[in-house]
Amino acid sequence: MNDLTFGRYAPFNTITHKLDPRNKIFLMILFIVAIFLRVNTWSSALIITGALLLILILAMIVSRVNFLQLFKSLGGMWVLILFLLIIYIFIPNPNYNPDHIAFYIGTYGVNYDAFYQSGYIILRIIMMIMITMILTATTKPMDLTYAIEWYLTPLKLVKIPSHIVAMTLSIALRFIPTLLDETNRIMKAQASRGVDFNRGGIFKRIGALTSLIIPLFVSSISRSEELSNAMEARGYDPYAKRSRYRILRFGWLDLVALLFMLMVFGGVLALKIMDANFMEIDFIFWIFGTKPLF
């Protein structure tokens, strides 16, 4: 169960923790856009990705995010890597340089560019995981929902009740740890009755899972009923005006972070628009030569 702690809020007191969650969400979106902006030349891609990766690693160190957690979360990515490799290798791409054939499968030439492309996209996905991890590890779930509510406020104009959405979200988030504890407890109780969740054939495992899922459902349903009763007993009215204990504040640190990110984003955009090839080097030619290896 400890694997599920990925990206869980860690109560340190770093600069990143102090930032306004609304600002953090905006920064994250900008960053992800910057990561996935398509650039056409190798050199720009290298400079952009390298710079962003450097910023990310520094941000992770500053906000004291556990690197080990990151590596653990990458363990499950091998399926994705395999999938991408197959797609990039076997779908012909006119942009691949025909000189960059690594080896032949039958008469089909496997291009180095395919490996480069899939590696590039995987790196960018990892970077996206890193940035979301920084967000969730440094922001309390409740603050996140407040921020989301703030972003949804304009939707009130089209009669979408953003505060109800936010309340639903915050209740859901609030109960994730409770459900995890509950899962843990039921797993232990069933383990005491001889259930082995880690071994056994597929049917055994399905049986083991039912013994976990049904009690979880039963307790969640009764819990939600209790919660709604408790809320009603305290006079909760979804349409009433609500005040809030914690007020989000946009401070000078936020301004600095925002300006810095805008600068980075501007730089990335400029590089993309120029799309210049600074170093006239064909990397693959440079590293491997043009002859097929096999």
Binding site: I186, K188, A189, R193, G194, S211, P215, V218, S219
Partner: peptide, 17 residues
């Protein structure tokens, strides 16, 4: 071992399914 030492947890009624 778990057959030899068995635990009845608090509120064990939640384990019924």
């Amino acid at each position: 071992l778990r057959k030899y030492v068995s635990i009845v947890f608090q509120f064990p009624e939640y384990q019924l399914f």
